[in-house]
Design a protein around this nucleic acid. Structure first.
Lengths: 205, 205
DNA sequence: AGCATAAACCATACCGAGTTCAATTACCTA
DNA sequence: TAGGTAATTGAACTCGGTATGGTTTATGCT
């Protein structure tokens, strides 16, 4: 029992094949110029099967690009503030990625997503739905009040902006190392701004 | 010449009729349970005509619910900070509405939008795209840097949260006056948080 | 090994949003 | 009143996504 199951292996394999084929086609011809029928056919699978793995076409493109800020807050060590925990988390991980994704694939995925407004909006929307979880985590058990929601919204917005800047840089020209370096500095800027407020900005007109 | 043209009057009238019919149907049976074909037929218009007025079904539901924060910043009076201008704007207008929309219709529209996750996400997405304009306005001519983008993102997030809280209260039970009153107080909370940072929050664990 | 079960898969037909296009109607202007 | 132009129309089409109902295939049990 529970012996790694051939069934589950094949399933995972099929999922990966669909995702990879889709990404390749998107990258080659652009998201809008590829139909799900083509993806299904190229992956050697029925359209229905494709949709059993990925609920929408968008999910094919954004597969694996996720993060759970709420978990970072709830799982933070003793005596650590929520914002401190998030700052540390952003310092540590340049981009939140699925465990088993190679960098090459990730960059391609980012390129695909960045070059399509609808996909960008979808990623934003996904992060938007994390706001409520984060608000709940910040409220720490109690029903989140307005302040908790505001904090969650601002933090989410900041992190989204960081990711956006990172994506933009990566898609443009910079190497992964360069972009990661810049990101490290940006993280500090963002969290300082979050913690100390907009009025503390130095070179402001 | 330019004498209020019957043509333009009819056009505007048709637009209003489509929007009203759509809103009524959405409110009666729910957004997902109404097809654009039904709306077109009920409005006595061809589907193609409907889509010439509203680019998407979503736009039928969110019609008139927009705001332009960038304009508030760029059009602010002399010697007024961007954030100050936005705070004043939020104080003044409970909800950003089109000039000629009655309150009854607005509340119905909010009820429709609030009761559908996809529509909620669409509204969020629309506000998301305003971020870049706001960042440009904050940069005041220069190319917006990371800080400008971060500020824009945080401000947008805060205002979105305010609107969300207002909608939620309105859809739940409160009267317009009650909700507006609470909103006035919430505006101050939100902008204080924005200006002074998250670490200045009083009752924080 | 042999068999029943359920998971994964498939082809096909279908639905609704949105587009294309040629033909038609209604307004405007000279 | 004639001719141009903007608005409208029906019909056919594309594509994302779902429903149906049937076929293969891994697996668990005996």
């Amino acid at each position: 029992m529970m012996m790694a199951g051939l069934r589950e292996r094949k399933k995972e394999q099929t999922r990966r094949r669909i995702s990879q084929v889709a990404l390749r086609l998107f990258d080659e011809r652009g998201y809008d110029q590829v139909t799900v029928n083509e993806i299904a056919e190229a992956a050697g699978v029925a359209k229905v099967t494709l949709f059993s793995y990925f609920p929408t076409k968008e999910c094919l493109a954004t597969d694996g690009v996720q993060d759970d800020m709420a978990a970072v807050v709830t799982g933070r060590p003793e005596g650590c503030s929520p914002i401190g925990a998030l700052r540390a988390h952003c310092r540590a991980t340049a981009v939140p990625l699925a465990k088993d994704m190679d960098v090459e694939t990730l960059i391609t995925r980012i390129r695909v997503i960045s070059s399509n407004p609808a996909l960008l909006a979808a990623v934003h929307g996904a992060q938007m739905s994390q706001r409520h979880e984060l608000a709940a985590a910040l409220a720490d058990g109690r029903e989140p009040d307005l302040t908790a929601h505001l904090m969650a919204a601002q933090i989410t917005a900041a992190i989204t902006t960081l990711q956006e800047a990172f994506f933009h840089r990566l898609a443009a020209d910079a190497s992964l190392e360069q972009a990661a370096g810049r990101l490290a500095a940006d993280v500090e800027v963002a969290f300082d701004l979050l913690e100390h407020g907009l009025t503390h900005v130095k070179g402001e007109a």
